[in-house]
Design a protein around this nucleic acid. Structure first.
Lengths: 247, 247
DNA sequence: GCTCAACTTTGATCTGCCGCAAATTCTAAG
DNA sequence: CTTAGAATTTGCGGCAGATCAAAGTTGAGC
């Protein structure tokens, strides 16, 4: 875990503004996506980055806001959501640490098309949008990372569409939870814990159903010993049995 | 309408193989996406293209097949679909003429992640995948077109997710039909006709519901004078009333 | 330890939509 | 014209899951 100097000093912090800070020049070294970049390049990227800390439930950026930054998530999780005209929130995907997000430039967009909200207290590097093209031109591998990110997201979105069209609620919840185990699972004694606070409401938005249905499912699964769940906390004991349900 | 020399000579033709043919060097001139490219560039692109004709219901490429080509749709419509393990087909989006598709390279993919099936007899330009990077490097505007395409698709996919999560069947059908009117509408006396054969089944796959529900809706709407529909054919008379339902 | 708000659970009811089935209409081919 | 397959329509029963309602539980802050 990199020490960026201000890590433990406050719980609440910048949401709108950016904060300059000394960044550990090795933060990128262990991210799989950035492994291909040579040390020189990583250093150059970091040199121009700014640190952003965002508390749980605050946003990195809002839907329809001008895209003046793109980011790399270092800690915490981010969920992308759209707001419907009726004010309902639909979560389209989760971003785990180590991934780029808010990369409107890669999609030829001028504004962000989703709201990026911190699922848990988060830490990210941020660059002004103007640097995107510059980075891509100067470091071809960087552009490649952007493409990979977009490609993977596209795939996830299509999977979600297939799910919503064909799977029943129980299956969708099981799959959503299964994905979270992979993307955000932290090993604990006897199982895998979702690494951030997850309410029934959150999970229902992710699976495209209601809080009530999620609650019923989790209760049933807990009775069957597949998982344990307290308030805002889920520990999956038998991922394999979850997959059977999802199948 | 460009005359490529073989246009009317057969109904069934190449699906796997490619066919070399003389290509009208002005085919790209009137495509909005390619308007920004200078004549020189357009000519260069065409010089290396191959023509592909695909009959209705045949595929341009299959899901999980190696991505050895990317294409530009000139005539006809293409639908992207995924096949579930249970063999069910889910349509994720429609591609109208004038758009690039099969651009796996832009997503850092080696294989196609969807099946691209011709909704109607189609005509497309095709280039070997190896040329993608070359084109992007040589003609920056071309890369921009690719980004715009990906960005727009991403947006559509997210819209679809919101729809499936929040809207009821009637609304989803109305929205899907509304989108088709925009993307594939041809003005006819008194209304707008969907420009390719569209079965109830097709529309149901697009809206994520069943043929039966679609049939019921269309019947009701026909009684209300919103549209007219024969077998495989839909003419929308009052798009505005359709939008009210979709709202 | 108390309080209150946020989160969760569980039951009861209601309904949209799917699944099944059977009739009907269309159209392309012979 | 005839025929057969494909596409469409329509009715009906059932149920998954939403909605409504009301407790119950947890934990952060005082």
């Amino acid at each position: 875990m990199p020490d960026t100097g201000h890590e433990n000093q406050m719980g609440q912090m910048d949401v709108a503004g950016d904060v300059h800070a000394k960044i550990d020049e090795h933060v990128l070294d262990h991210l799989p996506a950035f492994a291909r970049l040579d040390a020189e390049t990583r250093k150059a990227l970091i040199a121009r980055a700014t640190v952003r800390r965002v508390a749980a439930d605050e946003t990195y950026f809002e839907q329809d806001a001008e895209a003046n930054q793109f980011l790399l998530l270092l800690e915490g999780y981010v969920r992308f959501a759209r707001i419907t005209k009726e004010g309902e929130q639909v979560v389209t995907l989760y971003v785990p640490p180590g991934e780029l997000f808010g990369i409107a430039k890669a999609l030829a967009h001028d504004i962000h098309h989703v709201t990026a909200r911190a699922a848990s207290d988060g830490l990210a590097l941020s660059w002004p949008t103007e640097l995107w093209d510059d980075f891509c031109a100067r470091y071809p591998q960087f552009g490649r990372i952007g493409q990979r990110t977009v490609g993977a997201r596209m795939d996830q979105l299509q999977n979600k569409i297939v799910d919503l069209s064909t799977a029943r609620v129980e299956q969708r919840i099981a799959r959503a939870l299964g994905r979270l185990v992979v993307q955000a699972g932290k090993p604990v004694s006897g199982g895998t814990e979702i690494d951030f606070p997850l309410t029934r409401q959150d999970l229902s938005e992710l699976a495209g159903t209601t809080m009530h249905s999620v609650s019923r499912c989790l209760s049933a699964w807990e009775r069957q010993g597949i998982l344990q769940s307290k308030r805002r906390k889920v520990v999956v004991l038998h991922p394999s049995r979850l997959q059977e349900i999802a199948a």
